[in-house]
Amino acid sequence: MAMLELEKVRISFGALTTLDDLTLHVNKGEIVSVIGPNGAGKTTLFNVITGVYRPDSGSITLDGQNLVGKDPAKVTRSGVARTFQNVRLFLNMSVIENVMAATFGHTHAGLFSSALGLPRSRREEADVREQAEELLRFFGTRLTGYRWEEPAYSLSYANRRRLEIARALATKPKVLLLDEPAAGMNPKETHEITEVVERLRSEKGLTILIIEHDMHVVEGVSDRVVALDHGVKIAEGDFDSVATHPAVIEAYLGRKAAETK
């Protein structure tokens, strides 16, 4: 059963067509990796799904529900959460506040009820805090303890990436979009991320779409791999078949390399 469906999605900026009639289905509980050389349209794909850009044509649905034309906040509330390639945390807010802020979409305390400290809003606040703590504990000892009240900028790079995932989870998504979760991590941390992605599916029941350059991660987590080049899907299938697909090799290494293979 398809959770996230893109049908013939097309977007261009001026003369440059970044996604060219792209069709992509992600089934419930599936982990799909998107690979492709720089400029293939991977991040644009995420931006189109999350409503940052509006596609010129085509349809995007989540669990049968249309996403095209919704603003990013509405898309997130429908159940799509994302992380960013260049990590965009709320750096001057504390670690736990980063996560708590992301519960905004499914909480209700208004200006007056929180100003007056009404019981309902107090209960909700306590509840939000508990949710945030639980999400932070998901990362084991990596994100626990005294660091919760520290500003997010005091976190190391790898932990910023982890916090960004925790923050995305706080929106209670059905589909999680991870943009290069292992970028800039050392081999040990990369391995951890692979495990985290697997646990996100098994423990949280998420459907996951990943952009990743690290082929070890891609190999380790993906049920299916989709290769893009110039906004066109050039190969799709399990890791081995995509990794050896001539079009993929050509896209990465050029025609010559593909021929000698």
Partner: peptide
């Protein structure tokens, strides 16, 4: 009190990074 709770947090996320705030459903 507002600053510490839901609305205040959301206000501060806008100042920090409005695009990321939107992506978090705000």
């Amino acid at each position: 009190r507002i600053n510490r709770t839901r609305i205040g947090r959301a206000w501060r996320t806008i100042r920090e990074d409005s695009l990321a705030a939107q992506a978090m459903g705000i």
